[in-house]
Amino acid sequence: MSKEIDKAKIKAAVKRRKRETYKPVVPATQLGFIHHNVDCIGCRACEIACKDKNGLAPGPRFRRVSYIEGGVYPDVYAYKVNMSCNHCAQPACLPTCPTGAIFKRASDGIVDIDSTLCIGCRRCEAACPYGAPQFDPGDNLIKKCNMCVDEIDAGRKPYCVMACMMRVLDIGPIDEISDGSFQTTAIGPGDMPVKQVKNMADPELTKPSIRFIAHSKGGVQSKQ
């Protein structure tokens, strides 16, 4: 993408940003992800659907399926943790942005970036404990998952969710996912969603809008 930099616009934005005090946006409904760590076959159809949807060259990966394995031969285990942007209740990226390009939608809590304001400084990339902001060197921009806002606004679900061959990745109001009232194929009979899995940054840092069905060896005792 050829980007024309509007220097005056960015200057004005920085000035405004400095004047403002950050106050968390409390959305009407916070949407979030749910992923089943065990029943996921780890095929990465979601990753490629996301790359294709967002027109990404090799390099930036909005969605990342991590493979975790452990045990000693032949008693081994493996599971997947699937994460993109967690659209946190208190996003660490947002206050770091010098131009205020990062914003949180009041309607559904989706965290997005206004690309005309992004200067590619990568501060948000450093701040995020989950590796969500991805630097695109081609465009000199930070890009990340915006939960396919265009699809959400059209009444559909994001590309990654609709790509899942196993139907183990879904989005929904995070409160309902947490308390089990949300109807979704991602949660199987008897499964209990958890906030944190092993090797994942403490959710208390940013209150990420994501829940998991954890592997028996991949769970973490939640602090709450």
Binding site: V26, A28, A106, D112, D114, S115, K143
Partner: peptide, 27 residues
């Protein structure tokens, strides 16, 4: 959620850019 949404918009107004963005990550 519709009602709450309207309230949140009012409360957040003027502080940060919380209305629908004109431009997104991949314009």
């Amino acid at each position: 959620s519709s009602a709450a949404g309207a309230a949140a918009l009012t409360a957040g107004g003027g502080l940060l850019k919380t209305d629908k963005a004109e431009a997104q990550t991949y314009e």
